[in-house]
Amino acid sequence: MRPLILLFLLLASPVGAVEPAERLADPALESRARGISAELRCLVCQNESIDESHADLAHDIRVLVRERLLAGDSDTAATGAVVARYGDFVLLRPPMKPATWPLWFGPLALLIVGAGCSLLWLRHRPQAAPAPLDDAERKALETLLREDM
């Protein structure tokens, strides 16, 4: 329940995101920077990416990422520079490591188990299952229901 769901309390001013002044002149670099920013979490506003947030810290990190890219860093290295400071927590896409295997593979494992169970259930249902209700049985059902009243 979420009321106030869409209660963006932490967004002091909602017109957020990248400021024109931050942008890099090279469109290719800028688009890489946007891509990286979209997957970095803004720490102050918790569930927004720094690309969406207008918080001061998000601005600083956006600038940091752009500086790294200008300095010739790869996307991974630029992301790494932020992770070195703030930890895995800033990654909106959790890194793949043993601690996150259940997270990443859980859905697939569940699907397989679920599909297996469904198939088993389809195969091994009691063979002597009653046929669907015919008219007489429906009547009987109705009578039973009436008795309940």
Binding site: L43, D56, L57, D60, L64, R85, Y86, G87
Partner: peptide
């Protein structure tokens, strides 16, 4: 002044 050292330390507030 520009918060850069804070950023390098990993300050978030």
């Amino acid at each position: 002044r520009d918060g850069r050292t804070g950023l390098d330390f990993g300050v978030y507030g």
